[in-house]
């Protein structure tokens, strides 16, 4: 005999660029079971209540990074946030903060993609090697230096958690700066001097005021706040030491 069906209210911030001047809240009553994620709740709405609801999702297991939303005001992956934790209260769902809303829960991430490109997120080899010379070797300690910062899934929760990005869209922001740090810390990489120009720039690390919320919401425990703040020290060194060593790579 199944338990009595429970129903939770999901309030969704809706926005249709063709018909709406501003976003508005719409409440749906969604029957749910204890194993249902917020993503599944939103999928229920699309399948049975309103087919026009738009949102991004893919893997349902917190690795693709597509289903980030503000859930009761907190940046969260909707696939690993569960309706049972909000019941019997209403749960509020909104597109990730600080990004333009394209439609409903879908954000515009073009700005982020540009930033991702700008940090040169690939190894720029220190020394060119031929195939015959074999692979680039790395010790466990050298791997350790960057491994944590390489776990980012580009879900953008950290940007939705960062008021400094909200206030200044030019700020390169947590995830991109963290990935930048990941490559700078790689023993095989020689692109640090080039990337430091971005770290040092007005768009760079000094927009950060160490709020720390980015690291709280990161589903992969990448600790972007740490990467950004370590680079404040790196940037300050670069700033003051260039007077001693004027041949440094940065201008």
């Amino acid at each position: 005999m199944p338990e009595q069906q429970k129903t939770i209210e999901i309030e969704v911030l809706r926005y249709n660029p063709e018909t709406d001047q501003v976003p508005y809240a719409q409440v749906f009553a969604v029957p749910f079971t204890d194993d249902m994620s917020v993503l599944q709740g939103v999928q229920y709405i699309k399948d049975y209540l309103d087919g026009s609801l738009s949102f991004r999702w893919s893997c349902r297991m917190a690795i693709c990074g597509s289903c980030g939303m503000m859930i009761n005001g907190e940046p969260s992956l909707s696939c690993q946030t569960f309706l049972r934790d909000y019941y019997p209260e209403r749960v509020r769902v909104e597109a990730l903060a600080h990004f333009p809303i394209e439609r409903d829960l879908v954000i515009n991430m073009e700005g982020f993609i540009e930033k991702l490109e700008s940090i040169q997120p690939y190894i720029i080899p220190k020394e060119a090697r031929t195939l015959a010379q074999g692979e680039y070797l790395q010790t466990p300690a050298q791997l350790n230096a960057y491994e944590q910062f390489s776990s980012c899934i580009n879900c953008l929760l950290c940007y939705a958690a960062c008021p400094q990005f909200g206030l200044n869209k030019d700020f390169v922001g947590p995830a991109a700066l963290t990935l930048l740090h990941r490559y700078n810390m790689d023993s095989r990489d020689g692109g640090q001097a080039e990337r430091m120009q971005l770290v040092n720039a007005e768009e760079g690390v000094f927009n950060c005021t160490a709020v720390g919320y980015c690291s709280e919401v990161c589903p992969k425990h990448v600790d972007p706040a740490n990467a950004v703040n370590l680079n404040k020290t790196n940037s300050a060194m670069d700033y003051f030491l260039r007077f001693l060593a004027p041949k440094g790579g940065t201008k």
């Binding site: 926005y15 660029p17 976003p23 600080h98 333009p100 809303i101 394209e102 909200g166 206030l167």
Partner: peptide, 9 residues
């Protein structure tokens, strides 16, 4: 038809 909406801070 795109008209991205920017929420105020």
């Amino acid at each position: 038809k795109r008209r991205p909406y920017v929420r105020p801070m």
